[in-house]
Simulated assay, not measured.
Amino acid sequence: MRVLVKPGSLHGSLQVPGSKSHTIRAALLGLLSEGESIICNPLASGDGLSALSAAKAFGARIEEREGCWVINGRGSSLVAPEDCINTGNSGTTTCFFSSVAALVDGWTVITGDEQIRRRPIKRLVDALNTLGATAFLTREGQEAPPVVIRGVLKGGKARLNGSNSQYVSSLLLSSPLAARDTEILVDNPLETPYVQITLDWMQRYGVEVERSDDYTRFYIRGGQHYTPGRFTIPADFSAVAFPLVAATLSNSDLLLTSLDFQDSQGDKRVIDILQAMGAHVEKDAKE
């Protein structure tokens, strides 16, 4: 196959798709809230739809409207899924909903595609067992899904290696619904912008977390409740990078909308980098 590329330019306005990371967290917390949450501008990609399907499996009633999802959550009254949860290729959904399963007084089986069944999850499984749930992997000598989980999560103290932020976020999201307080200690915290996105969403849904400045310690009070609401998914800054770089390299005048410059996404640094290289980029705080 041959591809011929000719110089061109970009003009006009473009609404960037919503962030996958934000979409999954919003869908999960919609499930863990008791009442109706409206999620605007969700990313209805494979990963986002996997999270939505998992929320349905635990009892959420969901209506998919034009440009938004309406999620009627269960709060702490989750139901045990009637079938295995297949998360497809979504590692985030696999990790996050493993801790959700630990809130249920019943058995949950979570698996995914071939890649997911090769991705280690044992450290999260060990942490769930430490905090009072029952969790185990199904294949001897393997540290990856399928994983079988039963609650209920009681709380306590768990220590994690922070090289995979999904494990940390997973415990953070579910711990407020545990019976007792939870302390999470993190060694080698990496990918901290993703952990901060989790904390931001927990705060939007009405739950506060005490944390150290270096993301090595988190303290979550048990017996809390998430409050439903109306939320808008901000644009995915990794997706923003492509039209932004294209406009920078050509004689273009492009308006990108739905960006949140206060967002914790680490990929928003692309704007600062391009500006440092001489690109003319104006930020409008109203967008």
Score class of each variant (00 low, 15 high):
M1W: 07
L4C: 06
L4G: 05
V5L: 14
K6Y: 14
G8D: 12
S9M: 10
L10C: 12
H11E: 14
L14Q: 08
Q15E: 15
Q15M: 08
G18L: 00
S19W: 03
S19L: 10
K20Y: 05
S21P: 03
S21V: 04
R25P: 02
A26M: 15
A26E: 12
A26P: 12
A26Y: 15
L29N: 02
L32W: 14
S37P: 05
I38V: 15
I38R: 14
N41M: 06
N41Y: 06
P42H: 09
L43N: 01
G46E: 11
G48N: 04
S50G: 04
S53V: 04
F58V: 03
F58H: 05
A60Y: 02
E64R: 13
W69A: 03
W69Y: 12
G75P: 03
S76N: 09
E82R: 13
N86Q: 07
S90V: 04
T92N: 05
C95P: 00
F96V: 04
F96E: 00
S98E: 13
V100I: 09
V100Y: 04
V109W: 07
T111M: 11
Q115V: 08
Q115F: 11
R117N: 15
R118N: 08
I121S: 03
K122P: 03
G132S: 11
A133F: 12
A135K: 05
F136S: 12
L137H: 06
T138C: 08
E143L: 11
E143Y: 08
A144M: 12
V148S: 00
I149L: 10
R150M: 06
V152Y: 05
G155S: 11
K157W: 15
R159W: 09
L160V: 09
L160P: 00
G162M: 07
S163V: 11
S165A: 13
Y167M: 08
Y167I: 01
S170H: 09
P176A: 09
A179T: 06
T182K: 03
D187N: 13
L190N: 07
Y194I: 03
I197L: 14
D200M: 10
Q203A: 14
Q203L: 12
Y205C: 09
Y205A: 09
Y205R: 06
Y205L: 12
G206H: 04
G206V: 13
E208A: 15
E210P: 01
E210D: 10
D214N: 09
D214A: 01
Y215S: 06
Y215M: 11
Y219W: 10
R221S: 15
G223R: 06
G223P: 09
T227E: 15
G229K: 07
I233F: 02
I233V: 15
A235W: 01
F237K: 02
S238K: 10
V240M: 04
V240H: 00
L244R: 07
T248C: 14
T248H: 13
L249I: 08
S250K: 13
S250Y: 14
L255N: 09
L255C: 12
T257N: 09
T257F: 05
S258H: 05
D260Y: 00
S264K: 10
G266H: 06
K268C: 02
R269W: 06
G278Q: 13
A279W: 00
H280F: 08
V281A: 10
E287K: 03
